[in-house]
Design a protein around this nucleic acid. Structure first.
Lengths: 332, 332
DNA sequence: TTGTACGCGTTATCAA
DNA sequence: TTGATAACGCGTACAA
């Protein structure tokens, strides 16, 4: 029925162990022997059983993505980036949508690690900053990489963008357009990046000699509805801000919708800008000026760190962000 | 190090096999024995190794989602629905983003089946209609469920909505608003649903005694850009249509963007409507009138079919669609 | 450079 | 209702 190593060994006339050596690209295999084995593998269309490999060996050729981000685009990009990197090494990715508020999250993760023997995990915010999860993995000696961690960066390898510099760049851009009252919609405080982005906004204002007016700052929760609500609040001010900078694209889209509704979505009126973790900015009109966070690249690099040598020093790999200027940001 | 069945058997004073029986909820286990074993399992925090289970047994407690849909929302909803159903049975989902144009798709799927010992697969369009894939799975005797299959429905269990009736309902709705020239943006022909939706549009027009004007029909490819391009074409007609009905929400969003750009996104002007496979309709302004396809429900039901008894007759499970009327569809 | 013997943790078979 | 023992397919350790 199933084609096994045994079949390959018979077909090529070498021992099971030698076939295993070829499969795992070990050294000390004769060139001719290797060729014969590879031919037999191809002829029989042999595919090693991951179950048997993980049971017998130290590796399982599987890694897991712990991702409970509410944005489908973010999840999709993360999975795609990781998949791309894993494909290079013949490693499989286990990706389950998780619920970050689930009381069994910790248990689920422990279960996953035990049951699947994964070689490592990739953690995204906000789980990448959950002390309980970090402790658990460290205690079990499981490798993991964190995406956009907020603290304790020395704990494990990680990938990130400079959120503070990014927010400062966008704020400076808006200031350069002549805006003096810039509304800011912050992200949910459970995400470390929220604070970093807020910092960048504040610093850029300070640098320009403009006092931070607390009334111009609202807290959202990274979704469309909270962005719309925050924008309504901000535009009800007297005088209203001439620009709104949202900490995520979903919130920026919400703000833009409010602008549409109020007839402000035309050049010379309200400027709306945002972070663009995903791709939503392409679906709204007029297109948003955004800080593009290369989620897919961060994912790829995270997988790269995870699949790299186990004894490598803890590396923090920075990925460049991009300020994408589009027409929605008109001059005041 | 790792807690095994052996440890549980020692702790509870029964044989390994009996522990296994309890874990698999087999019959013929004494009530008291079962209780003791369960207590030991909980006390030791025992988690069975999936690798060992799939190696020794006939089941692997894993299913795979073959989903190469380009829409992140669709993928997310599919994964979430399947995850929800799988969680009930302690089954894990393997979800890899695939590339439907990959020349190695068939090989990748075969590899997945062989390597992971999955108990079954869930196929989404357009792969759910690829004869080569269907053949392969049938030949190997692997269970699978198809989502929205276009033909050969008797081949395997499937979930679907009545696309023709849905398109007809939307067309009738637009006719009821007074529209007589309704542009239609069709989906890519590689998706069976594209033809079904087109049929519904044509039939509803016929029923109203309105001849189908071929110039009002354009072919898109389910994405934002093709929807925008098709809308540009349609609005360049003389006279232009007073309504546009797109076969997907991404294309509808593209059409709406064109309407914005031309100043037509106000009541009394162009009506834009679309299918809503995902959730995008909530992110545009004004909100689109849509046929809501409950992707998550279809996914849940697909997993339900897959995890059900293996000897069940081939079932076609229909899921209800919903016509969601929102403000973008104004009277002519 | 290659081969032998054993074990990984669980389920299947068959006997008790 | 329970238990002993042989698989499952592969990697590891060690020997040749």
């Amino acid at each position: 029925m199933r084609v096994t190593i045994k079949d390959v060994s018979r077909a090529s006339g070498v021992s099971i162990k030698t076939v295993s050596r070829v499969l795992n690209k070990e050294r000390y295999v004769g060139t001719e022997t290797r060729a014969r084995v590879e031919a037999a593998v191809a002829a029989l269309n042999f595919r090693p059983s991951m179950a048997a490999r993980s049971l017998a060996g130290k590796r399982s050729f599987q890694i897991a993505l712990i991702c409970d981000n509410p944005s489908p685009y973010y999840v999709y990009e993360m999975q795609s980036g990781i998949r791309d990197r894993c494909a290079l090494d013949g490693v499989r990715m286990i990706a389950q949508p998780y619920d970050r508020n689930s009381p069994t999250l910790l248990d689920d993760i422990e279960n996953l690690v035990e049951a699947t023997h994964v070689d490592g995990l990739i953690l995204t915010p906000p789980v990448s900053d959950y002390p309980a999860v970090l402790d658990l993995l460290a205690k079990r000696g499981v490798r993991f990489v964190r995406v956009s961690p907020g603290s304790a960066a020395e704990l494990a390898p990680s990938t990130f963008i400079d959120n503070e510099a990014a927010a400062a760049a966008m704020t400076a851009h808006l200031l350069g357009l002549g805006h003096r009252r810039i509304g800011f919609i912050a992200g949910h405080p459970s995400y470390a990046t929220s604070g970093q982005r807020m910092q960048g906004y504040a610093k850029a204002l300070g640098k320009a000699g403009i006092p931070l007016d607390p009334v111009l700052v609202r807290e959202g929760s990274y979704d469309f509805a909270s962005g719309a609500a925050a924008a309504e609040d901000l535009l009800a001010l007297d005088p209203p801000p001439t620009a709104i900078f949202a900490s995520s694209d979903d919130m920026a889209a919400g703000a833009l919708t409010v602008a549409h509704r109020r007839g402000l979505s035309v050049p010379g009126q309200l400027s709306v800008a945002g972070f663009d973790d995903t791709a939503l900015a392409g679906f709204v009109w007029p297109p948003l000026t955004t800080i593009r966070q290369p989620t897919r690249v961060m994912a790829y690099q995270a997988a790269d760190l995870l699949l790299g040598p186990a004894d490598a020093p803890v590396e923090r790999r920075e990925v460049a962000f991009e300020l994408v200027v589009r027409e929605s940001t008109g001059r005041v």
